[in-house]
Design a binder for these strands. Structure first.
Lengths: 120, 120
DNA sequence: CTACCAACCTGGAGTTACTCCAGGTCAAGT
DNA sequence: ACTTGACCTGGAGTAACTCCAGGTTGGTAG
C-alpha cells in the first residue's frame, strides 16, 4: 500500500512516517517503478507499534535502539524484552500522572462550582 | 521560598520555571532585594497545576490561554471550567492509549517468551 | 495527444517546548 | 579578602515533529 494508507492505518502522519524512515526507525521501505514507497503489512504493523510507543512517551532514541536490535535478529530478543518491560513500567507511571491530574481537575471543578453556584 | 525549592515542590526544573515565567505562564514572581525570585505558596500551587497539565499533555498554548483567563478574575470561571473539562476528556484518551500500548506490549512479550522459552 | 489533477517525492526552513551554557551578581562562611 | 553556592540574564542547542517550495508521475477528461 502507499504512504497515505499506511498513515491512516498507523495513526502516524505522512510527514512523520517519512521522517521516521530517514532517521532509521523503519527498515528500508520498498519503492515501486515510480520511486514511490510501497508498505507491506509487516511495515504497517511496525508503524503501529512505533505509534503506540510514541503516544505513550517513548523517546525516539529508545525507539531507534529498539529498531536496531530488531534488525540484528532473534539473538537480541532478551534485550528487546527488557526495553519493552521498562516501557511497561513507564506506562504505570504515566497512569499515575493521569490519576493525579484527574484528581486535581476534580478539585478545581468542584471549587469553581462553589463560586458560580454550579450554573455556567 | 527560592526557585530551587519551588522546583523540587512542583516537579518542574529550575530552567522550565524561568522559561514559564518568561513566556507568560506565571504571574509576575516577586523578587527580593537581591533581585532573586521569591515564590509564595500560591505560586507553587500554580506551578504544581501547570506541571500536572504539562505531564498529561496539555500544550503551552492552552496553558497560556488558561493563565490569561485566571488573570482576568472570577468572570472567566465558566471558560476556565471548559478548558479543564476538555482536558479531563483528553485524560481519558490518554488512558486509552496507555491501555492499548499495554496490550500490545503484553502480546509482544508473550511472543518473545515463546521464542526464547521464557528464560532470558 | 495533451492538459490537468491528485498523490507522491526531496531538501530545507520553521515550530514547540524545553535544556544547557557562558559570563556575571550577591550573601555567607573561612 | 577570598572562595563557594545559589541565583541571574541572554542566547545557543536539541528533540520531534510540521510545513513548504518546487519537481515527478499515473490516470483521466477534453
Amino acid at each position: 500500500m502507499r504512504i497515505s494508507e499506511a498513515a491512516s492505518k498507523s495513526g502516524l502522519s505522512i510527514d512523520t512516517i517519512r521522517y521516521y524512515e530517514s532517521s532509521g526507525l523503519l527498515p528500508p521501505i520498498e519503492r515501486g517503478a515510480d520511486r514511490q514507497r510501497r508498505f507491506s503489512t509487516v511495515d504497517v504493523e511496525w508503524l503501529i507499534l512505533l505509534a503506540s510507543l510514541r503516544d505513550t512517551g517513548m523517546p525516539q532514541k529508545t525507539m531507534r535502539h529498539f529498531a536496531g536490535l530488531y534488525r540484528q535478529g532473534d539473538g537480541t530478543i532478551p534485550e528487546r524484552k527488557k526495553v519493552l518491560l521498562d516501557h511497561a513500567d513507564h506506562l504505570e507511571q504515566r497512569r499515575g500522572a493521569l490519576d493525579r491530574c484527574a484528581d486535581i481537575l476534580a478539585h478545581k471543578l468542584e471549587r469553581s462550582d462553589e463560586i458560580t453556584g454550579g450554573n455556567a
